[in-house]
Amino acid sequence: MTTLRVIADDTIARTSTQPRINGLTRYAGELTRALIATAPPECDVELIVSRRPTSELAAFESAFPGTTRTTVSRLPHGALASAWANGVRVAAGTGILHAPSLFAPLVRGDQHVARQLVVTVHDTIAWTHPGSLDDAAWARRMAHRAAKHADAIVVPSHAVAAELAEHVNVGERIRVIPGATSAGITLPDDPEVRASWLKLPERFVLASGSMDPRSGIDALVEAAALPEFQDVPVLVVGDDEWRGRRITEAAMLAGLPEGRVRPLGTVSDSDLALLLTRAAAFVAPSYAEGFGLMALEALAFGTPLVHSDAPALVELASGAGYQVARYDAGSRYAERLAAAVGTVLAGDARAEALATLGRDRAKAFSWRDSGARVWQLHAEL
Rank of each mutant, 00 (worst) to 15 (best):
G184H: 12
V113M: 11
D360P: 11
G171D: 08
F291V: 09
D360S: 15
P188T: 12
A34V: 04
V267M: 01
T303G: 03
W375E: 02
P263W: 00
L276E: 04
L354T: 12
R33N: 07
V344P: 10
P100H: 02
A339Q: 15
A91D: 15
G66D: 07
E228K: 11
D189N: 05
G109R: 12
V168I: 08
R262L: 03
P156D: 02
M294F: 12
P263E: 05
L345E: 04
A28K: 02
E241V: 14
A340M: 10
L293V: 13
E241D: 09
H129Q: 14
G66R: 07
Q323H: 14
L106R: 07
M252C: 04
V88Y: 13
I174V: 14
E315R: 07
A136K: 07
T67M: 10
T128Q: 15
A310H: 05
V236H: 01
A195F: 00
S196E: 09
A104V: 05
R332Q: 15
L198I: 00
T94I: 10
A251D: 08
A325T: 15
F204W: 00
W138M: 12
R350N: 13
L200D: 06
T248N: 01
A126H: 11
P41V: 14
D134N: 14
A150Y: 08
T356D: 13
G66W: 09
T54F: 03
M1S: 13
P201Y: 00
A312D: 05
